[in-house]
Write a protein that binds this DNA or RNA. Structure first.
Length: 153
DNA sequence: GCCAACGTTGGC
DNA sequence: GCCAACGTTGGC
């Protein structure tokens, strides 16, 4: 059982979208980075929990918790010529890109802003998302970090 | 809108 | 295999 942090732009897909999805479940598609691909394909397991982070928005921060309900399977949007995430190099016989399914667990009554996460240094210094220049849309979170962030919520 | 940071691409 | 150019991300 591992912990994660999953980033998304709320203008594209935010925690409200997940809350309104049927059974509060959705694909997490569009991963087009090899490091992230490897993590979701090789390390992410059913039952893992993840912080739902909003980026590129007015108040970046952690808005709630989601659970991995389906492990990695081929990301069909990579094969869809009309899709924004279409990847002509991806072969359906040997898929390059994978996605998982997530289910909303909790929406925080008060989101934990990036500002607040940073204010809790050094305890959360190593939380990858607060690091400058981090561009990975999914990052691992240690059990200690998980506990500390939850204590802030 | 700016810009730093980073991943990817492609010429050599 | 190197590395400059380019595109993207994401906070501010």
């Amino acid at each position: 059982m591992q912990y994660w942090l999953m980033k998304s732009e709320p203008s594209t897909f935010g925690i409200d979208d997940l809350a309104q999805a049927p059974r509060r479940r959705s694909h997490w598609d569009g991963v087009r980075n090899y490091q992230v691909r490897n993590m979701i394909r090789d390390d992410m397991k059913q039952g893992d929990l993840a912080f739902f982070y909003h980026s590129s928005c007015e108040r970046p921060g952690i808005y709630g918790i989601a659970r991995i309900v389906r492990e990695a399977y081929p990301d069909s949007t990579a094969f869809d010529r009309r899709h924004a995430h279409f990847d002509p190099k991806s072969d359906s016989a040997a898929p390059t890109w994978y996605m998982v399914d997530v289910e909303l667990v909790t929406r925080f009554a008060t989101p934990i802003s990036l500002e607040k996460l940073k204010a809790n240094a050094p305890a959360l210094d190593d939380l990858i998302v607060v690091k400058r220049g981090n561009r990975l849309s999914i990052t691992p979170v240690t059990a200690t970090q998980w506990r500390k962030v939850n204590a802030l919520a």
